[in-house]
Each structure stands twice: as structure tokens, then as C-alpha cells.
Simulated assay, not measured.
Amino acid sequence: MTADRSTSDAWVGSERVRGLVRNESPIDESVQSGRPSLLAIGLTVLVVAVALFLVWQTVSSLLIVFAGVLFAAFLDAAARALAPVLPLSRVWRLTLVLLLLSALAGFGLAWGTGKLPEQTRVLLKVMDAQVDILQEHLLSYGVDLLGPEWGRDFAQWLFADQGRFLSHAQFLLGGASSLLTAVLVILFLGILFAFDPISYRDSVVVLVRQSYRARARQVMDEMGTVMRLWFVGQLIRIILMTLFVWLALYLIGLPGPFVLGLQAGLSNFIPYLGPIVAAIPIALVAMPLGASPLIWAVAVYTIIQSIEGYVIGPLIQRHAVETPPAWTLVAIVLLGALFGVMGIALAMPLVAVGRVAIIRLYVEDYLGDRIEPATTDPPILGEQP
């Protein structure tokens, strides 16, 4: 009797399970049919929103990390350049590159400590005098360019109020310490990434679904190649622009030609806007020498900048960045407004890397269109140590 009752209960339980399976809810149907449920959609939206919020709150740190990756790409490019010359392992070539860069940095500091401060002081004094003259001319026409608080004696304005002086000192010290910290973090991150790029790449790839990891490696390698080509290209442009402007202004006879050439070269790090801003110090320094040197300085700088911008630059960067100039300028303006100087300085490589991600992951993988890679060079992360 007991056995019959247990058998009956088991039969009823199994029938109840079968009934539940036959009469499953619409949510279960959506799961089995592959459609995400409302709960899954809500959780996905929540996760994406939290991720975007965290990115927004830590964007300054993320830009520093990205700058470290750029520096690692430069170190990797230098190590690759030494490969045909020195039959050494990659680690030894990277070590040699770091030693050479340290020696160059030490020589530059030793030379610049005795030369650059004096030239910079003279140039600032000349530009300050020319701004005063420009202000007087504009005041004669009723235009107050610099405002009523502009004083001819900056030191008197600075030290007149002790509270103002302390606030300026705190601002300068805080800015200097933040800049030094960011530079050190970028340098150390770049060195760590450069010495073991494959493991760092795979630590990101492991977060991707296993069937898609080969594609993720391919896209990340292409991003690395783009960063490497962009950084090396920008470095070549800065060096060429500095040398040409330095030589031209030296022949014209302007004071501090090296400082003016250096700021003209560094301005190429910010495309389109940087060269225009770099022309202002050159014009202000040339104004006291008369109309002829001023015209010569502005004309020579314009010619050099035009040749560099329309001939040399596109030849160097044609394999790295293929973004239309308007989109690049939009990115510079938006990132500069959102994130300041770091956003402006890193706008170009961010656009280049973002373009690779959009084309490979969205246009090709999601939309199904096929676009050939812009570069055929070996990937930055493909070389074994």
C-alpha cells in the first residue's frame, strides 16, 4: 500500500513537471528563442551606464594610461628599427633604446639649463614690450584689448597682494607637481608595456568571448601599428619643423631662434590650431626689428609650415591616419573643451585608434562590409621578445 502510494506520488510529480514544461511562461519562450528578456536588457543598460559613468569620472587617468601606451609604441618602434643593425634580442634592444634616450635627455637638460632660460627670458621681455605697444595703439582707437587691470610692471602686480602671490604660488606648485607625476606615470607605464606587450594584450583579450579572441588580437595589433606610425611620424615632423624654423629665423637675425623654432615644432603636435598659435610669438619678436624682418619672418614661417603641412606631413602620416581633417578638428575642439590640454594633445591618436575600432568591429563585423587595412606593416604586438 505504501509502495503504491509512493509510485502514484512520483507519477503525479512527473506529470506536473511535464505540464509545467508544456505550459512554460512567455519569458521562458523568449529565452529559448534567443530573445533577451526585459530583465536582461535592463541589467545590460545598467551595466553600460555604470561603465560610462566610471569612464567619465576617471577620464584624466585613462588619458594618462593612453599616453603611456603611445610611449610604449614609440619604444617598440625604436627597438624594431635597431633589429636589422643589432642582432640582439628584443629586450636588449629596448634596453639600449632606453639608455640612448636617457643620455639624450641628460645632454639636453645640461645644454638647455645654460641656454634656454636666458633666451626665454629675453623673448618674454620682447613680447611683453610689443604687447604693451599693441595695447597703446588699440587704446588710441578706443579698443581695450587686455582690460583695465593690465599693468606694465608684472612683478609689481604679482607682489602687490600677498594673498594673490600665495594663491599663484600654490597654483604653480600644484600644477608642476601634477605635471611631474603624470610624466613619471607615462614613462613607467610605457616602459612596462614595451617590455612585455604580448602578455598585456592577452590580459585584455581574455575578457572577450573565446571564439572572438583571434579577431580581437588582430584589431588590437592594428591599433598598435597605427599608434606606432603616428608617434614616429609626429616625432619626425617636430624635429624637421624645429630645425627648419630655427635655421630660417637665425638667418633672418631674430633673437632666440632656437626657442622660437622649438615652440614652432612642438606646435605640430596639435594639428591645424597649433601652427597658427606658434606664429604669434615669432611675429611679436620680429616686430621691434622693423617691417622688413617682420615680413620676412612671417613669410618664411608660413612657407615652411605650408610645405610641412601639405607635403611632408601627409607623406609621413599617410599610413597612420586617414581621418578627414574636419573630423580631426572637431575631435580636437570637443576633447579640448572636455578634458583640457591632455584632450587636445591626444585627440589625433585617439581619433586614429577609434577609427580602427569602428571600421573593424562595427563596419566589418557588425554591418558585414569589408574594408582593406590601411597598413601592411607587422603589428606592434606581434614580435616575440
Rank of each mutant, 00 (worst) to 15 (best):
S102T: 14
L229T: 11
V330F: 11
V356S: 03
I270K: 06
L109P: 00
L243T: 15
S167F: 08
A169W: 10
R201C: 02
V205A: 02
G190A: 08
W11T: 13
P197A: 06
I27R: 14
F165Q: 13
L158N: 06
V131W: 05
L20P: 00
V183N: 04
W150T: 04
S33I: 00
A352C: 10
G261N: 05
I312G: 05
L145I: 13
E118R: 14
L124Y: 03
S6L: 15
L367K: 11
T375Y: 03
V65F: 13
F171E: 04
L262Y: 11
I316S: 01
M1Y: 10
S37T: 15
R217W: 05
R35M: 09
L249V: 10
V333N: 01
M241C: 14
W296L: 15
I27S: 09
S14T: 10
V298E: 03
L350S: 11
L260Y: 06
Q234G: 10
T58M: 03
F154D: 12
S292Q: 10
A105R: 05
A51Y: 07
L123P: 02
F74I: 04
D4W: 05
L63D: 05
P314V: 05
W246D: 12
A320K: 06
Y212S: 11
G233R: 07
A77P: 01
L367C: 04
L251H: 03
P197C: 05
T44P: 01
T58W: 12
A352Q: 06
V50D: 00
L63H: 07
L240K: 01
V300P: 00
F53C: 09
S203V: 01
G114P: 00
D153H: 10
F71I: 07
W56C: 01
P197T: 07
R360Y: 07
L179T: 09
L46H: 01
E372Y: 10
L334G: 01
T7Q: 12
I303A: 15
G309F: 05
L284K: 04
F193H: 02
D132P: 00
L123C: 04
I41A: 02
Q135M: 09
V21H: 10
T120F: 13
T113R: 13
T323P: 00
A214D: 14
V321T: 03
W92Q: 07
V351F: 00
Y362R: 06
A279C: 03
W111Q: 11
P349W: 03
F193I: 13
P281C: 12
S306P: 00
S306Q: 12
W296I: 12
A216V: 15
W11P: 00
G256A: 10
L273F: 14
R237P: 01
F231K: 01
P87D: 08
D377Y: 12
G233Y: 06
V232K: 09
A374K: 03
A169P: 01
V311G: 02
W111L: 14
A49C: 06
R16L: 15
A194Q: 08
